[in-house]
């Protein structure tokens, strides 16, 4: 089959949406970027800011892999447009460790083998950080329930719960 590039049809070209410049503080660093309104915070992080630690698992708020902290609260970054977050402070998995030292949750996830393939892990970690900050979970049942917005298809749930308990205990002591 001969390859023929399809000609652009006659008629008007429909312009791409106008970009809007926004400012975010991402992992402590000020970032400015121009994005069209239809760009989600997730795609802004991954495809525009090069922060690919945050994962896309469904793009519909069904799996939690894209969980980040916005102004300290855990949210699904696939379910918000970047322009809506203008001025926000965003923490991604890349921002959890401080000065080369792993966040207690990151260390606990390694210690308890709380992941296998790793594609839900960033979301689990940010979600767990949000969970601890919320202070609404103390029992195992409460941790399980309040971490149920983060699917793990490798089935690491018991290890995830154990890791979160370890991090909570470290924080208390």
């Amino acid at each position: 089959m001969a390859r023929t590039r399809r000609k652009r049809p006659n008629g008007q070209t429909i312009p791409a949406p106008e970009k809007i410049t926004i400012s975010l503080t991402v992992n402590g660093a000020p970032r400015e970027l121009a994005v069209a309104p239809w760009v989600t915070l997730l795609d802004a992080l991954r495809e525009r800011l090069g922060l690919t630690g945050t994962k896309k698992g469904c793009d519909h708020g069904q799996c939690g892999a894209c969980t980040v902290l916005v102004d300290g609260r855990r949210i699904n970054s696939c379910m918000t447009f970047a322009v809506m977050q203008d001025g926000a402070k965003v923490t991604t998995v890349e921002g959890l460790a401080r000065d080369g030292t792993l966040h207690p949750l990151q260390q606990a996830f390694i210690d308890h083998d709380a992941f296998q393939c790793g594609s839900c892990t960033s979301g689990q970690l940010c979600s767990a950080a949000g969970l601890i900050a919320e202070g609404r979970a103390s029992t195992v049942e409460e941790i399980r329930e309040l971490m149920s917005g983060n699917l793990c298809r490798c089935g690491a749930y018991p290890n995830i719960v154990a890791a979160i308990q370890q991090a909570m205990e470290r924080q208390r002591s």
Binding site: R46, T52, T92, E94, A97, L102, I110, D113
Partner: peptide
């Protein structure tokens, strides 16, 4: 022993197929 690729996975440094830049 803990996973040798654990640190890469918990910091977001591990590059999956959709993470490659160009």
């Amino acid at each position: 022993i803990s996973r040798v690729d654990g640190p890469a996975k918990v910091t977001g440094a591990a590059k999956y197929a959709g993470d490659t830049a160009a």
